[in-house]
Design a protein around this nucleic acid. Structure first.
Lengths: 149, 149
DNA sequence: CCCTATTTAATCGTGCGCGATTTAATTTCA
DNA sequence: TGAAATTAAATCGCGCACGATTAAATAGGG
């Protein structure tokens, strides 16, 4: 088995996995100062995008979209609630369910966030086409990994 | 600004950032059962790859390769030391430096890890060419993000 | 030489992710 | 209908990541 095979060697720089891991770490670092202005962390920003698209979703619905479970989301949502960005309320019709609603403050953050995607694109140094291609490849990879895991 | 522009909208599924983030989470989950057999976490596996390539590196050298700092590495290395996988020793010629050396057990893990990359490739459902292309795109992205961050 | 600047690692606090378990509410079906 | 199964969220424990600070050793300039 040749060591120049990028998939099958144990050399760090051959690994897709390390490229993915380190790019994600770099991405989070790049977003940090932008999101700090909104008072959000990166995962919190993702949750907010889910809720800006449709308010009042349940913890499970948010989790299905982000591929996160309640062990991650519950503490995160509580922190956002403590910052008066959203409210968590058990549904009257089914007390197991917790519905998450944005406050006025939470909704207003959407306007402040409007410049974030453009700034982020700038930092990538990629054309929109390149970004689309890369995004689609990563979505496919994620789908495969979750199916074959 | 059209909302179908994948780069500039605030819709979750348009975001490269979310594709990257969620693919990395899926990747770590996929690796977990494989690495559990070696008694390693995913970041620990990366550190081991660095040391299998060249033993006796300093904390900074490991950090330079993985883009991690001592705040992350020191506790991780201590855990590996507690499992007798490596040893940490201050250099006699410069007491600031900590040099990390594999134990026999740490070296022997390399053989057990030999099947991991192949298994991982299988789970991706990608051809080697696709993996190489994606890896190179991610390395380029990482480079750009770290330069423009 | 000594004092300051730099370098290296460690420490501290916060916020994830997630496997595993627990609690509570609802559904199922015998 | 009532016991068992299922579902939803919360809780617990651990291991990252990283910004910020600290401690200690070395290097460098006057």
């Amino acid at each position: 088995m040749p060591t120049y095979d990028p998939a099958l060697s144990l050399k760090l720089d051959d690994q897709l996995c390390f490229a993915l891991y380190s790019a994600t770490n770099a991405l989070k670092k790049m977003y940090r100062p932008m999101l700090e202005r909104l008072g959000l962390t990166y995962p919190q920003y993702l949750v907010m995008m889910v809720l800006w698209e449709r308010d009042g979703q349940t913890v499970s619905e948010i989790g299905d979209k982000l591929f996160l479970d309640s062990a991650t989301l519950t503490p995160l949502l509580k922190r956002l609630e403590n910052h008066s960005i959203l409210e968590r309320r058990r549904a009257a019709e089914d007390e197991r369910i917790v519905r998450v609603s944005l406050t006025a403050k939470g909704n207003s953050l959407k306007e402040m966030a409007a410049t974030v995607p453009g700034e982020a694109v700038g930092a990538t140094g990629c054309t929109p086409d390149e970004l689309t291609t890369l995004r689609d490849a990563l979505v496919q990879l994620r789908t495969d990994l979750m199916a074959n895991g």
